[in-house]
Computed example of a mutant assay.
Amino acid sequence: MPGRHSVNDHPPLKIPARLEAVAQLADYLRASCADAAVAPQAAIDLELALVEAANNIILHGYAGRSDGTIGLLVRQGEGVVELELTDFGLPMDDGQIMMCRPFSLDDESGRGIQIIQSCIDLIDYRRDAGVNCLAMTKFFDPPAPTDILSAG
Rank of each mutant, 00 (worst) to 15 (best):
D67V: 11
G79C: 12
C33A: 14
G79V: 06
Y28N: 05
E20A: 01
N56D: 09
V22M: 02
L73T: 13
Y62I: 04
A39E: 14
R127C: 12
N132H: 04
D45F: 13
A53T: 15
D121P: 04
P16W: 02
I57K: 00
L105C: 03
R126H: 04
G77Y: 00
R65Y: 14
Q41E: 14
A37R: 10
D106N: 09
E82W: 02
A129M: 11
E52G: 04
P91T: 03
N132Q: 01
C133M: 06
I120T: 15
V131F: 00
D128H: 11
G68R: 07
L73I: 11
I97M: 15
P16C: 02
I58C: 04
L72A: 06
S66I: 15
G110P: 08
N56S: 03
A37S: 08
D67L: 07
A39N: 03
L25E: 04
Y62S: 10
P102E: 15
A37V: 06
A49Q: 09
V74Y: 09
C133I: 03
K138N: 01
V81S: 02
Y125W: 03
A39H: 09
I116E: 03
L19C: 01
L19M: 11
F139C: 04
F139T: 09
V51L: 06
C100I: 06
M98E: 15
L90E: 13
D128G: 00
G68M: 11
C119H: 12
G77A: 05
C133V: 07
D67W: 06
I97K: 11
R18Q: 07
